[in-house]
């Protein structure tokens, strides 16, 4: 039967496609150990660990890293609250304007980042808001909402509505039902959404350049280094750190939601 087995051509095309996606990232790891300082020479003339120490001692890396962590943490927190609220409302009832609400949530991530960034930039200019950590957070939280929402809404859909009624039936008021039944069942999905939101925010650069003013998040620091390289191997080391900081939450999110709902991040 022709539909039962994949043809060799298809296998090769699919495999090559996946390899195309993965190999470049692996290359970064190699470059972090190169002894070559001035160019991107391949293959590296020698391998060394010294750039990790050099990067560690570079004073200009720490403030951007700290700012990125701060922004990602606060944005994630805001997105988790807002995303969960929308998901709860969507799960609770069908109301007029549902479609519009879900479009509104999706829009900040479906439209190119430059639009969101430029829009925020215009708004800050029109209303005369000076750039600060909060202007960055404002942007990040906005496009992180959809990530949390996607995860939460999938779990709400899977959660058997009867258990909320059962809880009320047994005498629990709304707050007890929330704490004893809803939250424990929603928890891992929210955590997954939060982690993805964190990864997204930690890595975001397109919107951030419009909302950061003179401040530098880690991605902005990296962007500057890419446009005007100073010490290339240090950039390589930072790149590995960034990869790790985003990989781990993504893997964790995947394992938190893996049974049944393949939604984690499906709408980045």
């Amino acid at each position: 039967m022709p539909s039962e087995r994949a043809s060799p051509g298809l296998k090769i095309a699919a495999g090559a496609g996946l390899a195309f996606l993965h190999l470049p990232i692996l290359l970064i790891f190699l470059y972090a150990f190169t002894t070559e300082e001035k160019s991107y020479q391949f293959p590296p003339p020698g391998l060394t660990l010294k750039w990790f120490a050099v990067a560690w001692n570079r004073a200009d890396i720490w403030p951007p890293l700290w700012l990125s962590l701060q922004v990602a943490a606060v944005s994630t927190l805001i997105a988790m609250v807002l995303g969960t609220l929308v998901a709860a409302a969507m799960a609770q009832s069908r109301f007029f304007g549902r479609e519009q609400v879900s479009l509104l949530i999706l829009l900040p991530i479906a439209l190119p980042g430059v639009i969101t960034g430029m829009a925020l930039r215009s708004a800050f200019s029109v209303v005369d808001i000076p750039f600060s950590v909060w202007t960055i957070i404002l942007g990040h939280a906005t496009f992180c909402i959809v990530i949390v929402y996607n995860n939460a809404v999938a779990r709400f859909r899977r959660l058997h509505g009867g258990v909320l009624e059962a809880s009320a039936d047994l005498g629990a008021n709304g707050f007890q039902t929330f704490g004893y039944v809803l939250l424990p069942n929603l928890g891992s999905a929210l955590l997954a959404g939060g982690m993805l939101a964190f990864a997204l925010s930690f890595d975001e650069v397109i919107v951030t350049t419009f909302t950061a003013g003179q401040q530098s998040t880690l991605p902005i620091w990296m962007l500057t280094e890419l446009v005007r390289p100073r010490q290339r191997p240090v950039t390589n080391v930072v790149a590995i750190v960034v990869v790790a900081m985003t990989f781990l939450p993504i893997l964790a999110a995947y394992y938190l939601t893996r049974d049944g709902e393949h939604t984690a991040g499906a709408g980045k």
């Binding site: 990296m222 790149a239 991040g265 980045k268």
Partner: peptide
């Protein structure tokens, strides 16, 4: 996972990787 990981891994790092390549 093979699709999700590259999709979610750092945008800038991916661009940077290509600069090296």
């Amino acid at each position: 996972l093979g699709v999700m990981l590259p999709l979610w891994s750092s945008y800038l790092v991916k661009v940077y990787a290509w600069k090296l390549i």
